[in-house]
Amino acid sequence: MSRLMRTSEVIGRPVVTLNGQDIAQIKDVVYSAGGGAVGGFTLAGRGLFSGPLKQGLSWSAVMALGPDAVMIRDEDVVSSVTEILDASVRPGGSGGNVLGSEVLTDTGILLGTVVDVILEVSERRTCDVVGYEVSASEALGTHSAKVFLPLPDTLSASGEHVMVPAAAKDFVAHDLAGFGAAVKAFRKNLEGQG
């Protein structure tokens, strides 16, 4: 079963080995080149006074990204954080930080600003960026202040704007439960056009 989650919910989640040890917690999500998938995580120590760690976790080392913990085999699977960050560098990109960016359609309509990134962990053990939670603009004409906007497989983003196809507007969901279906419908719609 695939599972949708907000990036903000993943941050702070404990990283636990199969021996039941919590070796770290998720500090931030690192997106892989292109920004369409999760490449790994930076880590922070557990406990009140612990700061960022020199180790990071690549997505390939993750056994499961669950609702309560990130499971890894043992503490040997962590790698250096620079390795994780290097693998994610996007040529000319913003490093994957889209929070606060304005979402513009390719027809030049502002849909809102990004407040969270929605991830989908699939059965095939991939972790894709499938949408944004967006603080909606008036153009969206929705009643709720925050909506879920599906994303195509690839998109262009700068620190300032995220460009989406105009059709994204028609596949907005108001809750995460219905969002998985909306993403599928949206992507199918795009394929149909191409």
Partner: peptide, 13 residues
């Protein structure tokens, strides 16, 4: 049961 440590007992899903 898979493992037991300071944080948790781990069981197969």
């Amino acid at each position: 049961l898979v493992g037991v440590g300071p944080y948790a007992a781990i069981v197969h899903a």
